[in-house]
Amino acid sequence: MSSEKFLVCTGAMCQCKQGFTPDSLNVLSQNKYYINDQGGSTKLIGNTMDLGLPFKAGTFGMCKLQPNGSSYNPCVPSITGWDGAYEKAVLGNGGQILTEESKGICAIAGSPVIEFITNGQMGAPQASNFEDTSDEIHQELNPMVQIQELINKGPFEGVEVKLS
Rank of each mutant, 00 (worst) to 15 (best):
T59E: 11
M1L: 13
L98T: 03
K17C: 09
M122Y: 10
I97F: 03
M49T: 10
L51E: 05
S2E: 02
A89W: 14
A89I: 15
E87A: 11
K17H: 10
K103V: 11
G154R: 00
C75I: 08
F20G: 10
I105W: 04
M122P: 07
Q18D: 14
M122W: 09
D135R: 08
T133A: 11
G110T: 06
N36I: 09
E4Y: 13
D37S: 08
S41H: 12
G61M: 06
I151E: 02
S128D: 12
E100H: 12
G11L: 01
L150I: 06
S128V: 15
V145H: 04
L25K: 04
L141N: 07
V159Q: 10
S41Q: 14
C106R: 03
N26H: 14
Q121I: 13
A12N: 05
W82P: 00
K103H: 08
G154A: 06
L65S: 07
M62G: 09
L163F: 14
Y33K: 13
I114Q: 06
V8S: 02
K5R: 13
G154L: 06
H138E: 01
L25Q: 05
P77G: 01
Q148C: 08
C16R: 00
I108G: 03
Y33R: 11
S70A: 11
E157P: 01
G40P: 02
Q148W: 02
E101N: 12
K5D: 09
L65E: 07
L141P: 03
M62E: 11
G61H: 04
S164M: 14
Q38D: 14
G84S: 00
V113I: 12
Q18P: 03
S164P: 13
N47Q: 06
D37A: 00
S102T: 00
Q126C: 07
C75K: 06
G81A: 10
G92M: 07
Y34A: 02
D50Q: 01
Y34D: 04
T118S: 06
G154W: 00
P77A: 01
P67G: 03
G46F: 04
A124M: 15
A109G: 03
T133K: 13
C9G: 05
N68S: 11
G69P: 02
P77S: 01
N119G: 05
V145A: 04
M13K: 13
S71R: 10
M13V: 15
S70E: 09
L163Q: 10
C14T: 08
Y34C: 03
Q15F: 15
L7Q: 08
P125Y: 06
G110S: 01
E140C: 11
G95P: 00
I45K: 04
A12Y: 03
Q38R: 14
V161W: 10
N68G: 09
